[in-house]
Design a protein around this nucleic acid. Sequence first.
DNA 1: GGTGATTTGTTGTACCGTAGAACATATTAG
DNA 2: CTAATATGTTCTACGGTACAACAAATCACC
Lengths: 394, 394
Amino acid sequence: MTTGDAPNAGRGNSSDHVRRHNLSVILGLVHRTRGVSRSQLTRQTGLNRSTIATLVAELVERELVLEIEPDASNQVGRPSPVVVPSRLVAGIAINPELDAIVVGLVGLGGNVIRRIRTATDHSPSVQEAVVIAAAAIEQLRPDLAEHRLVGVGIAVPGLVRAEDGVIRLAPHLGWVDEPIAAMVETATSVPTRAANDAQLGTMAESIFGAGRGVTDLIYVNGGASGIGGGIIAGGEPIGGGAGYAGELGHTLVNSDGLPCHCGATGCLDTEVRRERLLALVGLSDADDDALEAALLAAPSPVVIAEVHRQLDYLAVALRTAINILNPELIVLGGFLASLYAVAPDYLDRLLATQPLAASRESVRVVRAQLGSNLLMIGAAELAFEGLLADPASW
Amino acid sequence: MTTGDAPNAGRGNSSDHVRRHNLSVILGLVHRTRGVSRSQLTRQTGLNRSTIATLVAELVERELVLEIEPDASNQVGRPSPVVVPSRLVAGIAINPELDAIVVGLVGLGGNVIRRIRTATDHSPSVQEAVVIAAAAIEQLRPDLAEHRLVGVGIAVPGLVRAEDGVIRLAPHLGWVDEPIAAMVETATSVPTRAANDAQLGTMAESIFGAGRGVTDLIYVNGGASGIGGGIIAGGEPIGGGAGYAGELGHTLVNSDGLPCHCGATGCLDTEVRRERLLALVGLSDADDDALEAALLAAPSPVVIAEVHRQLDYLAVALRTAINILNPELIVLGGFLASLYAVAPDYLDRLLATQPLAASRESVRVVRAQLGSNLLMIGAAELAFEGLLADPASW
DNA sequence: GGTGATTTGTTGTACCGTAGAACATATTAG
DNA sequence: CTAATATGTTCTACGGTACAACAAATCACC
């Protein structure tokens, strides 16, 4: 017996598509779980175990997955082999930052194999960033020889048009209308896609991190260059018409606030800023862990006041987002997670009163789990997307 | 050749599901378009024309659709019969208002066959509303005898849990935690579902109204009891975890604003209100058309000032929503459409500066098209959902 | 430590649904 | 009136999954 399957759009479905779809579902499950037994696959897909056998056999044939010895499960019955992602398959993740270009080699299952951070002494141009990324990929050549490269994904701190991977605006890098995906694809000859970094972080946390198994969540990240976010609704990442969705940082939180670079005033992004925290704890430059340690170590009244002030504004933005999207989960990343770590009860109390009662009672707040690998894993999702959609074409 | 088909979740797919899916796709197209030729169906679904023939034949057999004479199309080639929704199939729509219960009989294709409005002299209890609705359905009995009733849908001015159709809060009716879907289902013995009225209006406008063919839109409605809204993202209605999504009325628009019944302060819903407009044009009670006529007829400075004030706040809420969701289209309904009719340029100018540039340049604002039938059509969508998902089971 | 119960892999067959080809039919263009 | 074109109709082929029967590997129990 096979259950449910609710495909979309106005498209029909033929046997060809059934095969493609089923291969895609299975490879997707193997990817997300990093290892499932064949018997679990039969249960989760609703397909017959003979069908699972042929489908898995095709994926093994194509060297996309491996079947390994069943683990001692203390279960009655014949043990079922575990299907794991092939270690051959890999994607490249690129993340340009203000002062560095990070390039990573990521295996199926979101496993970061290697990672090269190239610091830059100035904020690079897109051309420079592409050259640096290409050089880093060159460095990876020995590793690449052992892998099958299926794509490149770029996590950009700015607005990226989903359709063609053009950066419309990366304010802190000063990039405007730059076709970064096309440029990298030209340089690497590997299919390349680009998207907003926070959206990719959202996908990563949703698949491998704090949002596993949750269909409706909001991710909000606080970084050095500001606040970004992403949305998963009904289990799907929400990109909007062009790919610019998720900009929770430009929610109004203070009518009397300062003008924001976006053109409006009183945005979350203008009120809640990392620099202010750094200044208060006497750091000029620090990573998230150091900042959080300093905040927790020095709970002076001034620090607490600022933390509360920022949480007040965060709560206002979250109230709006909760009312609009009714998420089950809010995932906080970067220094927003630190703010929450310093005063969890304070934020919880605010969120227990501001949003509509029905929506607020079912929402949980947690911190992100993937840490420094977040954007590598997220960008790699973009790289894997084509493969996961149609495993048989590879 | 058949193209694309991207089903969801971790479910597999077998021949049984293919058939169900294809029937569902075709009935859905016939429903949405209110009439498609078989040749159009082959093109839009990508299925072979022999397959379309058998699928349509099954739907005809089940009396869900009819094939009618092709219309003179001036096209070369053999004319293709037009597939239209069967006039037999109908759903019941229920919409409780503050001073009336509206019940309608709606045919497949969103065609409102009959509509009964039962005025109440006081704000009814849920029990009263159900009794009144049941009585109205009784009145429809002669019509019902000629139709096949596939479901009941209820559009509730409040938060409704999607799972079981329990009203969590309908503030203006004073209803809390009322299992209205179950109550109506008991009274009618017809499968019944309930949802928020603005969400259903969103679906209706998206399928039959201003949002046809648009995959990412926001609908915002201004009614006597406040502001509601709904979201379509990636072509799908967004309900959130429990079904409470779309509450754009409780976005912060004024930090110095008044407390709102929702628990927060400065909500759009507290600043932008229909009563204020009614008072300024000297009406105590008027429908949307009368209010709009009065606003357009009497553009006194005071009226213009209030219209601008309300549009200022609406723009702030839309800016936040646009930044979060990047819609292609914003559909305004109720008195919000009237505000826009009075000063379209004013709102357009605000929206041309406040949201992020990339998002604002691709968004259009239009008014809703379905008028007084909006909620009947929307609620009927709920009634039809089961049928459209699996036509063969009926 | 053997035996039965249980679960799952394996193999071969049946069935279902769609695709495709060939032919029929209805329209337009000239 | 004829050719071109598009679509309906019919029949056959093919692909993919389900199912049944059997084999294999584990656990539970005595």
